[in-house]
Every structure is written in C-alpha cells, then in structure tokens.
C-alpha cells in the first residue's frame, strides 16, 4: 500500500507529502486529545485538577479515582461503585449478542437456502425494522414488557435488544449466505444432512468473518445503548451506560472529575477490547460481504 503511494507520488512534490501527512497528524492529535485528557485526569487528585492545567501530566500519580469509581462511588442512593452495573451490562450484552447473532444466521440461512414463497417480503419487513427509530417504539415496548412480566429486568432488556438487532444481523448473514454456494447445501442434502445439520456443520463453520462483523456491531451497539437501558430497567438492573450517567449527574457534594473520567474509561473498555481483538477481521469481513454480495 505504502509502496503504491510512494511510487504514485514520486513525480509529485515533497510539499504534497508534507501537507498530507501534516493534516493526518493534526487530525489524529485532535481526535486523541479528549482521550488524553480523560486518561490524565483520571490519574490526578482532585486538588491537582482544580489548580493545574487540563493537559498537564499528573504530578502525583494516583489510582485512587479508579478504585473509587469501580468499588465505592455513590450512584443514586447506594455507594458500591460501578462494578455491579458493569456486571449488569455483561449479563445483558453476552446473551443479547449471542442470541441475536445466532438468530440472524438462522434467518439468513433460511432466506437464502430454504426459500419459501414470500421470502422477499419477509426480508423486506426485517430490513424495515432497521429503520424504525428507537423513540417510536418505547411506549409499545414498555407496555408489552409489562404484559409479559419482564419490565424492569435485565431479561426484558435482552429481549428488546435481540428483537431490535435482528434486522441488522439478518441483513448481514443473508448477504453473506447469498454468495455461499448452494451446491454445497445440495451436496449435503444428498449426503443425508438435515436442516440443522447443514446449518451447524456446513454453513456456520464457513461463517467466521461475518460472525465477527455481527458480533462487533451488536456488541458495540448494545453495550453503548442508553435509551433502552434507561427506559426499561429499574434502579438495580440498569446497565453501565445509565449508571455512568447517574454517577456523573449526581448533584450532591463536589464534582469528582477524576472518578467520572475513570468510570467513563472503564465503561468504554469492553468495546475497545473487542475492537482490538477482532478489529482486523471486522474490515476483512465487511470487504468479503461487499465484494461478493
């Protein structure tokens, strides 16, 4: 890649190069500044924050704010830090991502390899679900959750996220499986494999890239969701994002910026982790879908 850029620029001037890299560097720094401020702030004591420069490195390095954010900060009326809510989020995000990904794969499988009359219509309706704004369904969803006895629980939140994610996951898998050779499915049928065996043994093992794309997409969306989290949960079952908001907006006492920053970084860590681990497959998977689909 860089080789191609170099050779393409060989005739061009050094100035062009300097301008391009200068701009890239400038914007990179610009976008990194907030993260930098968060990081340094989270390691400063409150006094230092009050007196010093926002961009300065911490003079007296302390991890006290992190410990407090995790274990003892007061959110609402309880003072147990964010760890419980972090747990809530994990408890919500793992099943929600797993179920919506599996169901999306299953939908994609049926919509491409077991076509039935009206399959186009069904797919169109599922796609439509991707475009319904969250706000429009809040009240109906709350009502339904209430009727089935799931309001205010993590379980209810999982159901909502699974249903809302289904449109996207189905879209991803349908496009991926559309390019998957049907002859393989036919060969498996002749070999005596049934509906589920073909799915588990033939399709899923070949779905690595699209599974990663879907998992990252669903994980970030569900982990970062605030609206559903704040609408459908009771105080003890709120997810991380809502707890963070409550922590930052607590009006009593002094504002502990360092604790807030530490909590915010903790809240962002899982998505960061997923990107670092699976990020390069993400781009690869998107490309695969784009080229073949």
């Amino acid at each position: 890649m860089s080789g191609r850029v170099d050779s393409g620029m060989a005739g061009g001037s050094v100035v062009t190069k300097i301008v391009i890299y200068g701009l890239l560097l400038f914007f990179a720094l610009l976008f990194l500044t907030p993260l930098f401020v968060m990081l340094v702030t989270s390691f400063k004591s409150l006094d230092e924050i009050r007196d010093g420069n926002m961009l300065a490195l911490p003079q007296n390095f302390t991890i006290e704010p992190w410990l407090k954010a995790w274990g003892t900060a007061c959110i609402g009326l309880t003072c147990g830090g964010i760890k419980g809510y972090f747990g809530n989020s994990i408890e919500m995000v793992v099943p929600a991502v797993t179920i919506s990904t599996l169901l999306g794969a299953l939908n994609g499988y049926v919509l491409t390899k077991w076509r039935f009359p009206g399959h186009k219509m069904v797919f169109a309706l599922m796609l439509f679900a991707c475009f319904i704004p969250f706000q429009a369904v809040l009240i109906p969803v709350a009502r339904v959750l209430g009727l089935v006895g799931l309001s205010g629980t993590v379980g209810g939140l999982i159901v909502v996220h699974v249903i809302y994610g289904l449109g996207f996951t189905t879209l991803f898998f349908r496009n991926y499986y559309e390019a998957f050779p049907s002859e393989l499915v036919r060969a498996a049928m002749i070999d005596g494999a049934g509906f589920w065996q073909i799915f588990w043994r033939i399709l899923l093992p070949a779905s690595g890239p699209i599974i990663i794309v879907t998992v990252i997409f669903q994980f970030t969306n569900i982990w970062n969701d605030f609206l559903f989290g704040s609408s459908f949960t009771a105080s003890e079952s709120v997810p991380m994002t809502v707890a963070l908001n409550n922590l930052v907006n607590t009006s009593t006492g002094v504002k502990e910026y360092n604790v807030d920053m530490a909590a915010a970084i903790i809240a962002a860590l899982p998505t960061l982790f997923v990107y670092v681990v699976a990020g390069r497959y993400f781009v690869r998977g998107l490309m695969a879908g784009a080229v073949k689909g």
């Binding site: 050779p181 002859e183 393989l184 498996a188 002749i190 043994r201 093992p205 070949a206």
Partner: peptide, 13 residues
C-alpha cells in the same frame, strides 16, 4: 444416489 457437482461442492471446513 450420489452426485458430483460441476463446482465439486467439497465442504471447505
């Protein structure tokens, strides 16, 4: 029956 396909249709995994 057994069938041999044009694309061979070997299970890649």
């Amino acid at each position: 029956i057994a069938m041999v396909f044009q694309s061979y249709a070997l299970y890649p995994n």
